[in-house]
Write a protein that binds this DNA or RNA. Structure first.
Length: 260
DNA sequence: ATGACCTGTTTAACAGGA
């Protein structure tokens, strides 16, 4: 089973590319971020015609996450638990039936956090603390679990073209990376790192400054797996060519194959 | 030497992204 994550940066602008990619890559489950749409304007029927079940957690203009799944969605949870006041649509979780039992998948759009001296940075750290608490709850189920998404975290200096340019950035500050590693240290495995030791394998290139042409990228999209999912991990790949398509997202898909 | 973009919305400049 192929499970992918992709920050599409707007469903309306990305629909042609998303359709093409769904046909060519044919993921069984696609976790999408930054749909930038309310639920009613998300083209769910189109994806249903392509054979997907659809769960959407959208909001107007910004953020928004979705899950497309060829297998039925048994249970859907919208929003990250832990703060009733938080109205940003950044977390969607679903339990999916497979031939070998239940698989739990989340589509995550972790806050960017810049600028660091604004309330956005404490919001990021608070959100990560909530994600850690929730991940702890989910890990206790001892089932295959995939927490996939745009984490807005550069894990190490080998995941950026020039670390010195990012030391003050919310994606790379020691405190941000420490919060990310706290989540990993609960017992999760980063799929890409389990499959590869190739440094400078990026998933995002800025639209500005010719970043794509110069390969000035960062690796910020991750799939974190529970032990039960890690046991079944076959491969992980970054779909780099999509960044070179017409009207690309600034992120590319990351896909894992699980033996489930 | 430096900067160079894209998206959605309020359709004309913004806000937000990373």
């Amino acid at each position: 089973m192929k499970i992918a994550t992709w920050n599409i940066n707007g469903i309306k602008a990305r629909l042609p590319n998303l359709e093409r990619w769904l046909i060519e890559a044919s993921p069984d489950i696609a976790c999408l971020q930054e749909i930038k749409s309310v639920d009613e304007n998300f083209p769910s029927e189109l994806f249903e015609e392509m054979g997907y079940n659809v769960a959407v957690h959208g909001q107007k203009s910004f953020n928004g996450v979705a899950i497309l799944s060829k297998k039925p969605l048994d249970e859907v949870i919208k929003g990250l638990p832990g703060d009733e006041e938080d109205d940003q649509a950044r977390y969607l979780e679903a339990v999916i039936s497979t031939d070998n039992g239940a698989l739990r998948v989340a589509s995550i759009y972790l806050p960017n956090g810049n600028p660091v001296d604004s309330p956005k940075y404490p919001y990021k750290l608070d959100w990560m603390a909530r994600l850690k608490a929730h991940a702890e709850t989910l890990l206790a189920y001892e089932e295959p679990l995939v927490l996939a998404g745009d984490y807005n975290i550069i894990p190490t200096d080998l995941d950026v073209y020039d670390a010195s340019k990012w030391v003050e950035d919310a994606l790379f500050l020691p405190q941000s990376r420490a919060a990310y590693h706290e989540i990993l240290n609960l017992g999760l495995t980063s799929a890409f790192e389990a499959c590869h030791n190739q440094p400078h394998s990026y998933t995002f290139w800025d639209y500005q400054r010719g970043s794509w042409q110069k390969d000035h990228g960062i690796r910020i999209d991750h799939l974190l797996l529970s032990p039960q999912a890690t046991d079944r991990l076959i491969s992980c790949s970054i779909d780099r060519p999509t960044r070179g398509w017409e009207k690309p997202s600034d992120h590319v898909p990351v896909t894992i194959e699980l033996d489930v």
